[in-house]
């Protein structure tokens, strides 16, 4: 199995890359420390390295830049498959978002993992996983290893108390497609979601972490007050 440490990847990049690009390079994390995080957090469900097989979760070789839910022989949740079809690819930003809080990125994921909030440990872990992926670009700023954004929400954003009456007005845009009754077929239901899940999911669309052209367009122009208002409205709808 290829034993590439992050620093050796970076060194190779230094030799090939123009100085200007390299000057901005920041390492993903400490892959050696990440190996320990992997053993503790991931290894009971996911294999990685030579001869790795799908177990409870799919193996993680070559995950970088792979379309989500794309191993035909593995049975994913419908939610993850859907996002894969919508265009979700595992680049650095999305791996960060998914590992931090799986349900924030993919609401209906079957991965029963509480999430890893510690940013440094997460970065180390991803640096470790990265070593088992193809290395089309060894410059961390190039896609798929560039870290543009993650669902970064301040305490203040999460603390906004949603104005449910305003949310009721705004909800008309949602209920043209998402049924108020909570019934769903073809388009997921959104009634009764916990407010925080709703807020995080909408910001993930707004930041284009979650794929889907319609939802990105909808979320784009909602500000944080409006997202909070919708979350407050939909949480209690039907109760």
């Amino acid at each position: 199995m290829p034993k590439l440490t992050f620093s050796s990847i970076l060194l190779a990049g230094a030799l090939l890359a123009p100085a200007g690009v390299f000057a901005q390079a920041t390492p993903i994390g400490d892959a050696e420390a990440g190996a320990q995080v992997y053993q503790r957090e991931c290894a009971s469900c996911h294999q990685i390295g030579e001869g790795a097989l799908h177990r409870i979760g799919p193996h993680l070789n070559r995950i970088f830049d792979r379309r989500a839910g794309s191993y035909e022989e593995f049975r994913y949740s419908e939610a993850l498959s859907r996002q894969g079809r919508d265009g979700l690819r595992w680049d650095l930003a999305r791996l960060h978002a998914y590992i931090e809080n799986p349900r924030a990125l993919v609401s209906g994921t079957r991965m029963a993992y509480r999430g890893l909030r510690d940013e440094k440990r997460r970065a180390d872990l991803i640096a470790y996983i990265r070593a088992y992926s193809d290395q089309p670009q060894n410059i961390p700023e190039a896609s798929p290893t560039a870290l543009r954004a993650e669902v970064e929400l301040s305490e203040e954003t999460l603390a906004i108390e949603g104005d449910a009456e305003f949310g009721a007005f705004l909800s008309a845009e949602c209920t043209t497609c998402h049924q108020r009754s909570g019934d769903h077929a073809g388009i997921p239901g959104i009634v009764g979601w916990p407010q925080e899940d709703f807020v995080v999911a909408m910001h993930a669309y707004k930041q284009e972490l979650r794929p889907h052209a319609v939802m990105q367009s909808v979320a784009q122009r909602l500000d944080e007050e409006e997202i909070a208002a919708l979350a407050a409205y939909f949480e209690n709808l039907g109760n």
Binding site: D183, H184, G186
Partner: peptide, 16 residues
Amino acid sequence: QTYEESIGWYNGIVDD
């Protein structure tokens, strides 16, 4: 998936 989404939309808007 886009086609299935359109059916979801139809059911959604007539329900609305």
